[in-house]
Amino acid sequence: MIDTGFDVILAAMILGVAAGAVLTRGMFAAVVMFIVYGLLVALAWLRLGAVDVGLAEAAIGAGLTGVLLLGALGRVNRQLGEDGTPPDAPHRPAAIRPVALLAALATAAALAWGFLMLPPPDGLHAPVAQNLAATQLGNPVTAVLLNFRAWDTLLETIILLAALVGVWSLAPDAAWGGRPGLAQRTRSGGVLSSFGRLLPPVGLLVGVWLVWAGADRPGGAFQGATVLAAVWLLASMAGLSDAPRVASLWLRAALIAGPAVFLALALAGLSVAGFLIVPPGAAKLVTVTVEALLTLSLTVMLGLLVLGPPERAA
């Protein structure tokens, strides 16, 4: 009864915030609504018992996405302002609204169809639980992500990498290979820089712990990497650590280390049993290695995605 009450209130708030984000006229208000939406959805995942997803949503939705969207908004406002156009009147063709509406409705319909076509609940719990022992892992979500459905995880990592290449391709020719974003200027010893000096060591411990704990408890490479990327961005925004040049070999090695080793192990599995099949005895070792390198790559990818295209010449 009380549990239902909580869930009803939470669901109503999520719908309210979503409606608010769409209906509000100010872009800033919409961004803030979206940050709150991420926070509430993290609570919803928690209520559904999906703590791993809740962790990822808390770190991505309430953390990284907020910084990304606020940065994008500042950029949009500056560009519109320079053209002399008021920020509230961007140029857009009249047809864009109905097209956007149709696209949104089509997506919603596709999602609803997918939801209604789902197999009855609990369909996959039993097989995962039966095979969990073979993975030598305690956390069924990590087992699914890095063992049973490793294929998806590999592709998702590569999609992020492709997205980063897409972001980089927006760089002006003169800045290609240079550092992303603008040089951060902060007052040394000010509030922002002091916060940037205090928090990262704690964030590092939490991020590393989430990756480590992912084997048996809620956590995992993606969640840990998001926290680590956020900590890196904080140090960067506080002017304490300038972004690396995107032409740097070290940076590129860090970016592909995770996917490359993942792929190499998958191919090695071919000689034993099949593509992406890990011999049961080596499962934990392989999973931990892949997880550690994936964390490194994902941290750098997520951080660079938020920092944006190179803007300063090499």
Partner: peptide, 25 residues
């Protein structure tokens, strides 16, 4: 814990976006 760790992130992003050219303090 993750929410608490990132509690000030949005505020820092906001302060940055509101600052001089989006990269100031």
């Amino acid at each position: 814990l993750v929410l608490a760790l990132l509690a000030a992130f949005a505020a820092v992003g906001f302060v940055k976006a509101a600052s001089h050219r989006g990269a100031g303090d």
